[in-house]
Design a protein around this nucleic acid. Structure first.
Lengths: 208, 208, 208, 208
DNA sequence: GATGAATGAGCGTTCATTCAT
DNA sequence: TATGAATGAACGCTCATTCAT
């Protein structure tokens, strides 16, 4: 499974990772535009020129980080095993919110995707569409099982996406006492409750 | 009541607006960082120096645009008159989504707020907190009227905010066929339905 | 003697003076280059454009100030009446040092003269040469009277000039505790003593 | 003792010197403010950005030149060996006047020191105070040896400084036929004579 | 492969001067 | 005559990228 790596190959791979980590840290701090290759090199403890041995240009660093996050995230949603819908939704939301908090690069990514076709394509293809697809699939199944009422799966998927993005952005902007004191898990629970049961008082009976 | 404005005063006010409009257009196109005062001046059809007669620096343009949007938006939410909750929520959502679509600067604003304390303060104070407050108020009233079930008003307000931000971002990134063909009104209706009635099939009775 | 001035002419002359005073203040503070016509206008409480009704350009302000100082200084040296050399020299020195302290523009003038032929010509012609001439004359007379020993009058004049400039510069740079606590009069007395009697212990007799 | 310098290190040191020399030439020509980094780069035959690899900003160039001059000047005064006072004073004066003539930056330095606290500090600390100290020391010794009559050493030191500055300034302004035809040595001799023996005809005896 | 000095186009901003009002 | 908004060339400085070592 693990490819036999020569020490040299391993050293090289390590260096690439070190540069990516440095870039991620600097991008998270300064955003893409304001981050300088000089600072990334300093943080990675390599020379500026070395970066260009591994990445064609600054944008390559961004795409490299995206790739890493996609790989890391993997099929975490598909992998979720849950007995009931509430637990499923909750776990999925929690995982995404935790990711946002960890990388602190959501806004930089989205903003760069907005301005840069190549980054947009990567984001759209590898992150958004994948997410929408997986969610649409799950939702459709839940519809068919009669667990969910038949709303438009595409809309529901986009509502989920909006919530993940919206809370991710709010996390990154910080400065919100309420969000700061809630754990992602607790938030996910609260959001899940609203999404599944709605805000309206049921006409007669009780909910859950 | 309306002050008689001299032609000169009117010309000056017009010029300031022209510069702001140009800046808004260029920011929407290129983002804040990549936008140059050179291009803004060109689009506004003034000399570069003229910009600095009206705004202290580039950031002043950004804050000026924000101010304009805040003024324009006003208390549009508070002003909404609606007989039922669904209609209220729907109108509020629709207004916000339309704004996002019109200005196409949400991501640039949020991103800049993430990096720039002054912009963050403006955003937080004049936009986010105002929105959260108005919404929390409305929600609390609906709770008290027994129309809404008693969820945490602060969380609900943040869910609304997340949805507005999340859909605004998705609009701006474009490239989503589903969103492109839906009107803000239709989207707002769909989202409202999910938020009020929930996704789960009610145990026995009907919804709506 | 005083020309009949119409009120209008007086107002105009007053304005010109106000602008010159403002320019002198700003030049003394910021130097010529860093002084802006905007600030001068602000200090003079006129519009920027008004300056150009009275002076062709920024340099005109500098020459105008020089002219004013020359007029003010006038033939103050020639006017000095003194019984003995010591008193003469002392009064002349004191007057110059006081001027330096008052206007705080010596360095700015000299520096600008160094760079700007027109300013140099003015300075050379109206200030330096006049000073050298008056001094050379006085010195020659003192020689002839047998009061001074026969040194080269041109050199002696330049030594005086050097001392006036040198102390003026030291005043302007500030930061010298010794100079700060001495009055121009006391300094002039000390300098005069050295210049007249020399630093060397006389072979036999006493001095003064 | 002398470190073996790699060719690269030597090239780099050479470049830094080349930039400093270019800056000194342009500053001497245009003054500090009017000198542009563009022109300095052109004269040094490097790209504009290269300057900033060696100096943090334009002011760094000025301080770099000052440092160089200080280093070059070193303890030249302390190093002077002379049998008699006249020769000592003469050599010290001559050295300073020659420096002024060589660098042609005295006025620019002084003017900039007047306006810029950092430059003032450098000037005060490394040039003026050092000079005053060395001179005060020498003078005190001469007093104690009974060679000089007991004038205030602090005043005498400042008179020397004033003369050095005053003649330096007159050199730089040029346009003085008398100064142009005198060598620094001859001038120093003449000035020394005046300073040591005074201008006044001694009451009875002769001087030196 | 690693280095980091060199590059130079391009940035935000300033300010003396002009001129329509 | 007084105004001050408009101008635009020019400034100091940055930084992604290259390439000789």
């Amino acid at each position: 499974m693990i490819p036999e790596q020569s020490p040299k190959a391993r050293r090289i791979a390590g260096r690439k990772l070190k540069i990516l980590d440095a870039a991620a840290a600097v991008f998270a701090d300064k955003g893409y535009q304001r981050a300088t290759t000089r600072e990334i090199a300093r943080v990675a403890d390599v020379a500026e020129g070395t970066i260009y041995n591994y990445f064609g240009n600054k944008q390559g660093l961004l795409l490299g980080i995206l790739q890493q996050i996609v790989a890391e995230t993997g099929d975490s949603i598909a992998a979720i095993e849950a007995d009931d819908v509430a637990s499923l939704v909750e776990q999925a939301l929690e995982a995404r919110l935790a990711l946002s908090k960890k990388h602190r690069m959501l806004l930089t990514f989205l903003h760069e995707a907005r301005l840069n076709p190549e980054v947009l394509t990567f984001y759209t293809t590898h992150l958004r569409d994948h997410l929408l697809e997986v969610m649409t699939e799950r939702i459709t199944i839940l519809h068919q099982l009669g667990i969910m009422r038949p709303a438009d799966a595409r809309l529901v998927a986009r509502i989920f996406l909006a919530i993940v993005i919206g809370f991710g952005v709010q996390f990154e902007l910080g400065d919100d006492a309420f969000l700061a004191e809630e754990t992602p898990a607790a938030l996910a629970r609260g959001i899940t409750d609203v999404l599944l049961n709605g805000l309206q008082k049921p006409p007669v009976g009780e909910n859950t």
